[in-house]
Amino acid sequence: MRRHARPGPCFLYVLRMSGAEDLLKVGISADPVTRWSAFHRRWFEAFDLAHSPLVEAETRGDAQRLETALHRTLKAHACPVPLTMRAFAGGASEWFRGAATTASDFVAGCADAGFIVHADARAQVAATLHERQYLFASVLDQLAANARDGVLAPEQIDAVRDLAEAHRAFGADLSGLAPGDVLRMLGLHV
């Protein structure tokens, strides 16, 4: 099955895990926030976004070429997917241990070659979440409707709470997105 390329930029990401271990996930995506959220339900904490660069490429093909070159460069550092990551998210061959310096050098080379490099992914994430606040407000409305109808599962509350906390971690004011009773149901006091 062939995927159709989205118009617009595509990003090579070097996603660093939070914590003391030098562990990286390397991949490409036209929508890094959606991709990263597939790896871990609390992706915004699991990854050190301040030290996770994005290399912006004009096309998916350009991003794939960068990704392939970086994978080859890091081949000796390949490691298994961390147990804390969701296996169904894919990308099992794109994890690397002890490769931060080599990956940083590669990203610096991309900047030297004229690619736009976002050294700190937090600004990109904040902008994406801000653009999607209307979607999150719809999710909160559906949560409230499900609660009223008595069809709200605890897993749904947990998933929406994680989504809410991701938005809050990047500066969203949730009080304007949902009624107080919905926020209290999620355990989010504003």
Rank of each mutant, 00 (worst) to 15 (best):
E165Q: 07
V160E: 00
A103C: 08
P179N: 09
L143R: 01
G150L: 05
D31L: 11
H71N: 08
D22I: 01
A57G: 12
E155I: 11
V81F: 00
S175E: 00
R6N: 13
C79M: 03
P9I: 06
H4Y: 14
A92N: 15
V14H: 02
L177M: 14
A111Y: 06
V26F: 11
F106Q: 05
E165M: 08
L129H: 03
A20W: 05
A169G: 07
S138L: 15
S37D: 04
H77P: 01
V151E: 08
V26K: 07
M185Q: 00
F39V: 07
F136W: 05
W95I: 06
L152N: 06
A103H: 04
E56F: 14
R72H: 14
H130W: 08
A100H: 12
R3V: 09
I116L: 12
A69D: 09
D173R: 01
G19L: 02
L83Q: 12
D48V: 08
I116A: 13
L183W: 02
P179R: 15
R168L: 01
E165H: 01
A144N: 06
P82M: 11
A50M: 10
H189D: 10
L54A: 06
E21V: 12
A178S: 02
A30I: 05
F44T: 04
T59I: 08
L188P: 04
G98R: 05
P80G: 10
C79K: 01
R6D: 00
G180R: 14
R2E: 14
A147M: 13
S93H: 08
A164I: 05
V33M: 02
H189E: 12
D181Q: 09
F170Q: 04
F170G: 05
F47Y: 09
L70K: 07
L163S: 13
A78V: 12
F106T: 05
H77R: 09
A103M: 03
H189W: 03
A113I: 11
A121S: 12
H118Y: 15
Q156V: 11
